[in-house]
């Protein structure tokens, strides 16, 4: 899932400025599961902003609403009226949600309440870790299901650099060395021979380096008349 965390309140207040009517928009998908931008967080943030604006002597009207998914037009349509009534939209969806609101409601001014951090998972309660960089050209079949692109600090493709110690990366003792994990896993599956092949330079054109990406699935597209209807 997409992992995000809330921006510092002062930064959020700066982004909002002197708006009078603020709508906090939560999202019911990834950021709900990572406790950053769901219904509960939207309510708490709205309440914090109300309180702090009162203390400042310029009380703002802050309301909140949470949609199932900020990244799909049909869910955004449901909050069209609330959006139109607000001076400013504070989205606590991921970066995609913020952009979806800006794109779908060109007349509104939307600002982000979260920093979208990575694609990952909760490794345990309260801890989230990066697992994927969406490079568009998956190598997990060569590495035992552990991604060196996302999890090695240097995205190395040909094995451990020599900077790890006791299984952790040299950049931080809290970061496991991805190549130690890969090595151990391939050793346990008797597949170390996979590591002996030289992996050629990666084609990064499928990653962001090739420009903003787009997928077109004609088999799923609606016929023009159907789409218009």
């Amino acid at each position: 899932m997409i992992i995000a965390e809330q921006k510092p309140l002062d930064e959020i207040k700066n982004l909002i400025g002197d708006a009078e009517k603020v709508l906090v928009v939560g999202c019911g998908t990834c950021v709900t599961v990572c406790f950053a931008g769901g219904d509960r967080e939207a309510q708490i943030l709205a309440s914090s902003l109300r309180m702090s604006s009162k203390l400042n002597g310029h009380p703002m009207e802050v309301t909140d609403v949470t949609v199932q998914r900020q990244c799909e037009w049909e869910y955004l349509d449901e909050i069209e009226n609330e959006i139109k009534e607000a001076d400013i939209i504070l989205s606590i969806g991921c970066g995609i949600g913020v952009q979806a609101i800006a794109e779908h409601f060109p007349d509104c001014w939307v600002v982000p309440g979260l920093n979208t951090t990575f694609l990952g998972l909760p490794s345990e309660q309260g801890i989230w870790e990066e697992r994927c960089m969406a490079c568009g050209n998956c190598v997990l079949g060569l590495t035992g299901g552990i991604c060196p692109v996302a999890r090695c600090s240097k995205s190395l493709l040909n094995g451990p650099c020599g900077g790890s110690e006791d299984g952790h990366c040299e950049i931080d003792p809290d970061v496991p060395c991805a190549w130690q994990l890969i090595y151990d896993r391939l050793a346990s599956k008797d597949k170390l021979d996979l590591l002996l092949e030289i992996e050629p330079p990666k084609d990064w054109s499928t990653a962001h380096d090739g420009g903003p990406r787009k997928i077109v699935r004609e088999d799923l597209m609606l016929e023009t008349e159907e789409a218009e209807a």
Binding site: G163, E199, P201
Partner: peptide, 24 residues
């Protein structure tokens, strides 16, 4: 060489490259 990670140096906020690795 692959190169030391920039976090150890005097520009730790830099963007690194690592387009290829030392073997490549």
């Amino acid at each position: 060489l692959t190169g030391d990670h920039q976090i150890f140096g005097n520009h730790p906020t830099a963007k690194h490259v690592f387009d290829i690795d030392s073997i490549q």
